[in-house]
Amino acid sequence: MDSRRTWIGKFAGVVAAAALSPRRLFSASKPEGAAKKPRWGMVIDLDKCTGCGGCVVACRAENNVPVAGPDNTGRDRSIRWMDILTVNEGRYPDLRRQFFPTPCNHCQEAPCTKVCPVGATFRNEEGIVAQIWARCIGCRYCTTACPYTRRYFNWSAPQWSEEARSLLNPDVALRPKGVVEKCTFCHHRLRATRENARAEGRPLADADVRKLPACAQSCPADAITFGDLNDPESQVSLFEKSPRAFRLQEELGTHPKVIYLREGKWKE
């Protein structure tokens, strides 16, 4: 074990210095003229959501999340950065069922970041809870600490058929067996979009990012919106003020940045 630890230590050090430092990863380009750093958040309108799972597949495709296969699925070990939580209530025929698309909440007070013994996870200065798989030692403290179960451990090596390798997104690294992974709010897309804006010599606009994450972009019901909660003009900020807005398990004091809009029903 010793040799392994030293090796990982060295390796992580080198890589972090070279490329993976949080600063470099998440805030390489400061938005021009922005008074405040962005605080990225997401709003999911449960009234619009139809539980189709388009977001789930979009996320898996975009982020190279491996197919779980029969064995891992049977053991509840599927990895879905974006999942759909189904809540059933009542008995036939007085039934109620709700679907909650559940990405990482990117909590402002994220419990998972506080338990990581090796600094593999942290909240960056723009509010994204990041994970560096190369640093992760697979202790799973963070998966236990997350009250929303939004962190996933790689129980086995991912399986790709030779043919399916063609599908892999070159913008997202593959994760090895034994590390924890999670939703990144598609930060690679954020970075690319920001670069584009900078190349065009303009600040990042709300319209650039509203449908930025793969889940939001795919949603056929237009239920998912992404944006800067620090920008009072952004769509997410407007939604945040809606009387329908709530967060999951707000009482825990985690301050999630995924905000839900309550489902409605028709009234005469």
């Binding site: 390796f11 070279a18 993976l20 798989w133 190369a134 991912p158 790709w160 390798r165 090895p176």
Partner: peptide
């Protein structure tokens, strides 16, 4: 695996990656 993943996430060139390596981003 760690090496492959680390290199990939660092955006560095991958040289001499093993074909059998499940984490290799090398495509057919």
């Amino acid at each position: 695996l760690l090496r492959a993943a680390g290199l990939a996430s660092g955006g560095l060139l991958l040289a001499g990656c093993d074909r059998e390596d499940p984490y290799s981003p090398k495509k057919p």
